[in-house]
Design a protein around this nucleic acid. Structure first.
Lengths: 167, 167
DNA sequence: ATAAACTTTCAATAATTTTTGAAAGTTTAA
DNA sequence: TTAAACTTTCAAAAATTATTGAAAGTTTAT
């Protein structure tokens, strides 16, 4: 396998994985491309490499910036903007964990808390509902605490902790 | 909020969350319904509660069974099959972790290993590619080890470990 | 063997999500 | 101020994914 083949395969794989953690294919592919590029790329570069339209590129770059895993840079004497991805893998993991917590877990916890607080009328179905939604709340809440802890520690905490756990 | 409202809200929320962990809405809603039901439900019951077709119900119940989080049961003297979800939250978390590892992480690891093994021709872009794909491989691999450990421990390991970490 | 009770399959349709591309918007240089 | 260089927006189109429902399939009782 040569560089070009490996690169295409990586971008393709990362792209289809993206849909699994809640971002679309183009967004994940742009991220993959920037992640392995030694130099920041312009919008034009991204469009050409991935064969996607200007509009699509613009919108998805914006989203990546919103997620905090891609940055705008500029080159002296050039008007164009260039884009670079977060290169540090720990920083990337932290950022993703942070965003997933904010976008998914927090809103879910809110709903779980709400629905598990209905009045217990004594019926079996109500009891079961309260029991099960409370259990889910606890699970999600615990998972979220872990994620927040990862997010708020020094960059290597994740790896260190994992290594300890694996001993 | 009464029981019916809370139930609908829970099913709705769980349904839209589903798309985020890689299962479709109907599948997640069926799971939600069974998860809070004190009794196993028939296909008919599920169709009526969620207003979805027979075919849809059948296919998604099958998938839930494939994921290992819903079981078929039967009632004596009845020909119909009934369906019940895994009720134990630790078992549910384990099962989901196990399936996500098998379906997503393992295949990704395979590709990452493959593409990060291309020959280093000394160019900056190749060096960067190898460095970054290796780093991702390490991250995914570590995350997977954790998940497998969770999967292979006694039912309460997850919660216990989390509690320790939070101290 | 027949038929009733039930489940599965799958081609057609519907719903949703993504992508395009051209017009509108913005910034900078002269 | 003008215009060139570049980016963003968004309605329409395309692509993808989910759902339906009726026919085919299966199982069980008689």
């Amino acid at each position: 396998m040569n560089y070009k083949e490996a690169k295409d395969k990586f971008i393709q794989t990362w792209g289809s994985l993206g849909t699994l953690w809640g971002i679309n294919k183009a967004m994940a592919q742009i991220h993959a491309l920037l992640f392995i590029s030694p130099e920041p790329l312009s919008m034009e570069d991204v469009m050409e490499e991935l064969h996607i339209s200007r509009g699509n590129t613009s919108m998805n770059l914006r989203q990546l910036i919103d997620w905090g895993i891609v940055y705008k840079t500029s080159k002296v004497g050039e008007r164009k903007e260039y884009f670079a991805s977060e290169k540090d893998i720990n920083e990337l993991a932290k950022q993703i964990a942070r965003e997933r917590s904010r976008r998914e877990i927090q809103p879910t916890l809110k709903v779980l808390k709400e629905v598990s607080s209905i009045e217990d009328d004594g019926s079996e179905k109500t009891k079961e509902f309260i029991r099960q939604t409370k259990a889910l709340h606890d699970l999600a809440s615990t998972a979220d605490s872990i994620m927040n802890r990862v997010v708020n520690q020094e960059s290597n905490w994740l790896t260190k902790t994992f290594m300890k756990l694996l001993k």
